[in-house]
């Protein structure tokens, strides 16, 4: 995957979570994904806490994209 497509995917995924286009993802936005994704509310809570590196309760695109990069790195190793 090229750098541009990673950036594109990051934006796409961010927008899938930030459906109101606020520019950040709140804990409530994350819980809404419960309907569309095969993850439990607890798992989504866990994902949110993992991505929210500064712990302020909001996920910015920066935090989201570093989580996505970490995921991609893990994929490469395994």
């Amino acid at each position: 995957m090229g750098q541009n497509s990673i950036l594109e995917k990051t934006h796409e995924f961010f927008q899938m979570c930030d459906i109101e286009n606020k520019g950040f993802i709140s804990r409530r936005d994350m819980q809404r994904l419960n309907d569309g994704l095969p993850l439990s509310a607890e798992e989504l809570e866990n994902v949110f806490d993992t991505l929210d590196s500064d712990g302020n309760g909001f996920l910015t695109l920066d935090e989201f994209s570093s989580g996505f990069s970490e995921f991609l790195c893990g994929q490469k190793i395994s």
Binding site: K9, E12, F13, M16, G36, L37, P38, L39, E43, L44, N46, V47, D49, T50, L51, G67, F68, E70, F71, G74, Q75
Partner: peptide, 29 residues
């Protein structure tokens, strides 16, 4: 370091999350 351990445990959840987003995007079941 307890934070490192927690991070490792959460890696699987994170992978699960992004994989689900990928499947949702591509329309795979």
């Amino acid at each position: 370091d307890p934070n490192m351990k927690a991070g490792a445990a959460n890696e699987g959840v994170l992978a699960n999350f992004f994989n689900s987003l990928l499947s949702k995007k591509t329309g795979a079941p």
